[in-house]
Write a protein that binds this DNA or RNA. Structure first.
Lengths: 183, 183
DNA sequence: ACGGGCATGTAAGGGGTTACATGATTCT
DNA sequence: AGAATCATGTAACCCCTTACATGCCCGT
């Protein structure tokens, strides 16, 4: 499970429940990672069985008891080992969108242009999200937080998303232009 | 199975065996899709059970009989339906590399710089692959092939890979510079 | 009155990887 | 002599998604 690295990463900054973890993932890594609660809970159980995390139970009324998880020294070690593994490859990626574009021509020129234009719109909307919501989230966080995380890399990763999306937009504009010239 | 769309896409251009399919995927879509034979064979069986492909058996000696698969009209319909589904979203992505970079700071500045520099090297190597091997593959193919596929979108997708990789490189250079300035 | 937030989970199934199994031919 | 190519597949296991299950509290 590679989700376990995400969990260990967040727990290394402070104790959290599974529910809180989900919110942290949604807020800060949605650009490059996501997970459902139905995956987080079993994963926490698994990490606990391996001794990488422990939890305290906080009784509550009207809700299930809270289980506050914290990273153990063994967990910290595992996280560090993973972070230290050489980052000297570019793992193969998958993209259903690009796959579809690859086979799109068989629909004929007008349909192909419709699809490319739709995708262009989606990418533009995404660019706006990165420039507005995501940006504000980071600003809010950086002002209000404990100094253990600077938000430095977070802002840089937001910029990564912005740059890659801009590149996609320019590429799609170019493809549409080329396509219109054809035949 | 989204692999089934890849298979239907390739079979729409002409009949192939599972083994050939693997080579086609490796050659042309490795930029955004990949699959192992152990996944391709069951997937073909599944498509056959659904009536989307059929196969002819060609006896051989010393090797298992060849099974040459072809797309059926129902298969073509399924492919077209998929290609026509609105391309108006940007599906969430996952990247272990970005995830690692997000948590990298906890290793300390020198280690973080080592990791970022390694990743920069990997991205530069990838850029060269796109500019050389991939480019030559496409040129070879475009000259020697049946006119049903123009290789037009293939070359554009290669350019997409080149552009995105260039963006990654510039971003990493910027991050390393920022990181060196810090503290 | 109804939806959303809080808080935990289970179950079923899709999709994918790695390792294993067979066995002839051809290249280095 | 050993590796790669051709050609098919199975088995075990991991990762993830979707749907389901429970139940209180708070805001509109």
């Amino acid at each position: 499970m590679s989700l376990s690295h995400t969990i260990l990463g967040f727990l290394s900054l402070g104790p959290l429940t599974g529910y809180d973890l989900k919110k942290h993932i949604d807020n800060s890594t949605q650009l490059f990672w996501h997970a459902e609660l139905s995956q987080i809970y079993p994963s926490l159980k698994n990490l606990e069985a391996k001794g990488l995390v422990i939890f305290d139970t906080v009784p509550q009324e009207g809700k299930p008891d809270k289980k506050i998880y914290a990273i153990t020294p063994a967990g910290r070690q595992t996280l560090n080992d993973w972070l230290s593994e050489p980052l000297d490859e570019t793992p193969p990626t998958k993209s259903l969108v690009l796959l579809k574009i690859f086979f799109l021509e068989s629909l004929g020129k007008p349909q192909t242009l419709v699809q490319l234009t739709r995708q262009l719109g989606a990418q533009r909307a995404r660019l706006n999200r990165y420039r507005q919501e995501t940006r504000h989230q980071i600003e809010d966080y950086t002002q209000s937080s404990n100094p253990s995380q600077s938000g430095f890399l977070w802002e840089l990763l937001r910029q990564y998303g912005e740059l890659q999306t801009q590149t996609s937009i320019r590429w799609l504009e170019m493809v549409i232009q080329e396509m219109e010239k054809k035949i």
